[in-house]
Amino acid sequence: MNHPSQDDEADAALTFRTRAIHVGNEVDAATGAVVPPIHLASTFRQPGAGQWGEFDYSRSGNPTRSNLQNTLTSLESGVGSLAFASGMAAIHCVTMLLESGDHVVAGCDLYGGAYRLLHKICARSGIDVTLVDMTSADAVAAAIGERTKLVWAETIGNPRLTIPNLAELADIAHHRGVLIGVDNTFGTPALVRPLEHGIDIVMHSATKYLGGHSDCLGGTLSVADQELFDRLYYIQNATGAVLDPLSCFLVSRGLKTLDLRIREQSKTSLQLAQWLQAHPRVSKVLYPGLESHPQHALAKQTLDGGFGAMVTFELDAGLDETAKVCESTKLFHLAVSLGAVESLIEQPATMSHASYDAADRARFGITDGLIRLSVGLESFADLCDDLDRAIASK
């Protein structure tokens, strides 16, 4: 494992918000530029035949990608990070640690793309998956068998916003000799740092809050162990799903305002959740900041300074009526994705979680009346008026 340098120790003493701005964004030595240049080169001149410099070919390493990875490693309290072409490419890299005959225990409150990868792609290689309620330690422990090699959870579940006990899950997995990874896209390192809770791998769809502006696609992994990092880097380099330099620059730029954005978005989300909870046409609101949320107390312990910017609510309505509500908003764009400055609305049953088998959607509470909001930086009053008009159209 790498030993921290004096510079690393000095950086660690800085606050999260300051590290997001300065670590990985050091002044360019050649020009004094306060924003590092974007290195678009695909290959790098070497000192001699068989002699390798720090960078040789951009699939294996790129200065702009390294800057982003260094920032994220600091923010996630890890030993190393990797940037991928998409969030799914990052998850796929984790699954390539597995072999035929292995078994995965994953959460039932799970992003539809991850569900599809595990059930439709990994299954072709003889890898089995069992979906369980990650808020139940007993259920997770019971699902782990002799063939289990990976537990995969989400810090805030998608779309029902469940909150697992990360430290408890990490203890269970490690006691059984199993790796545990979490998707921290909804939580962001500004609110929760899973590696500090004993998790082995933390993944982000960098497309979402890390980038924050709906203008780039990317994914990341951060890990707490050097040997595990080396294994994941080998797979990434061998398979090639790396993030391009321009997207790396955009994610790095987004990270500088992440702390400010997610905290402000969380405030508005709580206001909207409270307003929706009192709405006569809304039958249920799922938001970790509400006292009615099943894991509210745990969320207060796990999440630092906010409850996230995703709000899910349910209408007592069918598929078509719910779709009409989603189609009637003006400020909330009807779109998949999340985590940006503009607010989005979607119907999980037909959009983000359409890849679920119908039986699993019904089993795990992804009903026809479910609506998922990604709350942006617009004012609460404007978003409230927009939702009120749309719900009235039902």
Rank of each mutant, 00 (worst) to 15 (best):
E327S: 13
L383M: 00
K300P: 08
L169K: 12
L377N: 08
Y111P: 15
A273V: 01
S379T: 11
D388L: 00
H174W: 01
L315H: 00
A123R: 10
F55W: 13
A153P: 04
D183Q: 06
A90Q: 12
G126T: 08
T148W: 02
S205W: 05
H204C: 12
G187H: 13
L258S: 12
A224L: 03
E378T: 04
F229E: 13
G48S: 05
D200P: 11
Q277K: 13
L344D: 09
N165C: 04
A381L: 01
H353V: 10
L260I: 14
M351T: 13
L286M: 14
L286D: 09
L14H: 02
L331I: 14
S100C: 02
L298R: 04
T155N: 12
E26A: 03
G50Y: 00
S125M: 02
K208A: 12
D56Q: 12
T31H: 05
W275S: 02
Q265L: 08
R231Q: 09
K300N: 11
S379N: 00
N2Q: 06
L338E: 12
H92V: 09
R65Y: 02
L298S: 04
S222Y: 08
L270M: 07
Q274I: 07
Q295K: 01
Q226K: 06
A12H: 08
P245I: 07
M88D: 05
T64M: 02
T312C: 15
A33L: 12
R253V: 00
H293M: 10
G187A: 13
P288I: 14
L118W: 12
S205Y: 03
I38Q: 01
A12W: 02
E168A: 07
V94S: 09
S374I: 06
A317T: 03
R147A: 11
E346G: 06
L243A: 03
G376H: 05
G339S: 13
L334R: 10
A139L: 15
A33T: 09
H119G: 09
I172E: 03
Y115I: 08
L110S: 15
G369E: 01
V23P: 02
G240M: 11
V375Y: 01
A273G: 01
D230H: 08
T15G: 07
S42T: 13
D382P: 00
I371K: 06
G181V: 14
D171K: 02
T350R: 13
M88Q: 14
K256H: 15
R263Y: 04
Q265D: 04
L72C: 11
L117A: 11
A142R: 15
I262S: 15
S393E: 01
A30T: 01
T322V: 04
T268G: 01
G369W: 00
I371C: 04
L258D: 13
A85L: 11
V35G: 12
A362I: 13
H22Q: 07
K330H: 12
R372E: 13
A317I: 03
Y233M: 06
D7Q: 14
E291F: 08
C108F: 15
E76F: 10
D382T: 03
A137C: 11
A114N: 15
R176E: 08
A317D: 01
M134V: 15
E196F: 03
A89V: 08
A340G: 14
A167Q: 09
A13M: 12
G289W: 04
S252I: 01
R261W: 08
T73C: 04
Q46I: 03
